[in-house]
């Protein structure tokens, strides 16, 4: 999808970056629009199945990501972490996985937006009194937690992924564009960044809590005996992921000595 684009992007002067980013958007757009169209025409139930499939993939991916990030906690000058990150950016199997990941994000986000727009349209005139029915609290805010995750994701891409691709200048202090350890340490030593990061993670946790239980219903699995247990699993998953990611900046703020 973007290999063509990496070739031209070794240049890091500003105009070229802008040009490249525009090209990137146009390149993906050619795929995004037909994809959105297909998703739009699909039956509402099939669409949710695709959303849930993509979402499940993301749920699994987050655990992998968390696992790798936890290497940051080793006080080894980033040896293990950079090794893991290096593996993730060079291994061919992971590269295939990466394409799936981007596709999953794209599909998930597109369907999320389509769903929400349709849902708003299906009640053109709202009620004067609302919110009296106790519903799953988080389900109502999925689009907002989702969009918050999306902004975080864009910043995350600018901070790490685009650097790796050579689109963005390697920050001073990092050895090269693959020195993610140094980049992460710099980010996590910045109090403002850390606070914003905490907020993002909380929002992510809210998304995940509803998401985890929701996929089972979407796939048609709702069982008197197992569903309450799955709800507890959802809570555990959301807490583990949120706290797991939170531990890392906390460590760099308060306990890390280089």
């Amino acid at each position: 999808m973007y290999s063509k684009f990496v070739d031209t992007s070794f240049c890091i002067e500003k105009p070229i970056i802008l040009l490249n980013i525009t090209k990137y958007i146009l390149l993906t757009n050619k795929r995004v629009l037909p994809m959105a169209n297909t998703l739009l025409k699909m039956s509402s139930l099939s669409r949710k199945v695709f959303m849930a499939l993509a979402g499940t993939f993301l749920l699994v991916f987050l655990l992998v990501h968390l696992g790798i990030n936890l290497f940051l906690l080793r006080n080894d000058g980033g040896e293990w972490f950079n090794l893991a990150a290096g593996f993730m950016s060079t291994n061919y199997l992971v590269k295939v996985f990466e394409i799936f990941l981007l596709a999953a994000f794209l599909i998930h986000i597109l369907i999320g937006i389509i769903l929400k727009l349709q849902n708003w349209r299906s009640r053109p005139k709202g009620y004067a009194v609302t919110g009296k029915t106790p519903t799953s609290f988080f389900s109502r805010y999925m689009i907002w937690t989702g969009l918050t995750i999306l902004t975080a994701l864009i910043i995350h891409f600018i901070d790490f992924y685009f650097v790796k691709m050579g689109l963005i200048e390697v920050p001073a202090g990092a050895a090269d564009k693959h020195d993610f350890y140094a980049m992460a340490v710099m980010k996590f030593s910045d109090m403002t960044y850390v606070i914003v990061y905490y907020v993002w993670l909380l929002v992510l946790g809210l998304h995940l809590y509803h998401a985890f239980q929701s996929v089972f219903q979407t796939f048609g699995f709702n069982h008197n005996k197992y569903t309450p247990g799955l709800k507890r699993c959802a809570a555990v998953y959301a807490v583990v992921v949120t706290l797991g990611f939170m531990v890392i900046p906390t460590y760099f703020q308060f306990f890390f000595q280089s």
Binding site: S44, R47, K48, L115, Q118, N119, R121, S122, R123, T133, P134, T135, S136, S139, R140, M142, H210, Q213, S214, Q217, T218
Partner: peptide
């Protein structure tokens, strides 16, 4: 023109 299900379960409650 009905909306999509977002598993909010307000229906079941009401």
């Amino acid at each position: 023109g009905f909306g999509n299900c977002s598993n909010a379960y307000a229906c079941e409650y009401e």
